[in-house]
């Protein structure tokens, strides 16, 4: 950064900082609000228009959530599916992307097929029928396999592989490495930033998957945390179209404080992944691999 800032530059910087801070606050505030409400007593929450700092801090909402067998179990399911699913997705996507980045037989046909699904989705009901016909129904794999390869990620990753210097692979071939060795020992280690980025995309996608879980899983024991979360939270939103339903239903929806606590618990694990992957984004991709 240059040190000899003029006054006008300083003013621009100041305005930038203020704007960015305001934007950042609009992102952070909802989280802060959820955090605060989740620790407040229900009475205090009801009494105040906008609760910014509760007078009494209680753990009731968290006790309720963590005492709920279904919620804890669903959180476990989600973590499991996310880890396995991200691994499977990354493995399949990178393998296919690498293969398609080389000049292989039928490359254009396969690329066309991938691009085709990118442009035209099959729709919910045909996909449901495929999942049913392939025997994936009511299996956690139904959350992983049908969405294992995102065509967008595949194409971007293929582009990334194509930009890797060919000299590297040629050098490996001369050293006697076969295709798998090149892929495993040269390409993948060089692609850590890409893998981190796409891994994050996949992980967040699977973590948030809710409708597929609802459609394909029949046994409540296998439901993911988002399904349970919606149960806890949606009844509090008051924006449902079907008011008649709310009017006739008898079970009390849980208090808002519990909903907030549930959202936090369901969000924090995936948020925690970000800082660990961030260092990969910042690093240079090809740092010192080949001298041109």
């Amino acid at each position: 950064m240059q040190q000899n800032n003029t006054k006008s530059e300083k003013a621009v910087n100041l305005v930038n900082y203020v704007l960015l801070i305001i934007i950042a606050l609009t992102m952070i505030f909802p989280f802060y609000y959820m955090f605060v409400v989740s620790f407040a007593t229900y009475e205090e929450f009801v009494q105040s228009d906008l609760l910014l700092f509760p007078k009494t801090w209680v753990l009731d909402a968290y006790e309720y959530i963590l005492g709920s067998k279904e919620f804890v179990r669903s959180l476990g399911v989600t973590i499991y599916v996310t880890i396995v699913g991200t691994f499977v997705s990354l493995l399949l996507t990178s393998m296919m992307a690498y293969a398609l980045s080389r000049n292989i037989l039928g490359q254009r046909v396969y690329l066309f097929l991938v691009l085709f699904t990118f442009v035209f989705g099959a729709g919910m009901i045909p996909t449901y029928m495929v999942v049913q016909a392939t025997g994936l129904m009511d299996s956690l794999w139904s959350l992983i396999i049908p969405t294992a390869i995102s065509s967008f990620n595949l194409i971007v990753m293929r582009q990334f592989f194509m930009n890797l210097p060919h000299d590297l692979t040629e050098a490996a071939i001369i050293d006697g490495a076969n295709d798998l060795q090149i892929f495993g020992k040269i390409i993948l280690p060089l692609s850590k930033p890409a893998l981190a980025a796409f891994g994050l995309f996949y992980a967040v996608g699977i973590w948030n998957s809710y409708f597929t879980a609802l459609l394909y899983l029949n046994d409540p024991a296998k439901w993911t945390v988002q399904v349970i979360l919606r149960q806890l939270v949606i009844l509090n939103q008051g924006n449902m179209l079907d008011v008649g339903m709310q009017a006739t239903m008898d079970n009390p929806p849980p208090a808002e404080t519990i909903g907030m606590a549930a959202i936090l618990i369901a969000t924090i694990p995936i948020l925690l992944v970000y800082p660990f992957l961030q260092k990969h984004f910042a690093k240079g991709v090809m740092l010192g691999s080949v001298k041109e």
């Binding site: 009901i125 409708f211 459609l215 029949n218 399904v227 339903m245 006739t248």
Partner: peptide
């Protein structure tokens, strides 16, 4: 039996009906 929370039920029922995957008894709210 198989149960879905009612606030999510309509969506799944519609898909099930469209795909022809019908059980013996089908419930609904109204």
């Amino acid at each position: 039996p198989q149960y879905i929370p009612f606030d999510l039920y309509t969506d799944k029922l519609a898909v099930k009906m469209s795909s022809g995957d019908l059980p013996d008894v089908i419930g609904d709210e109204t």
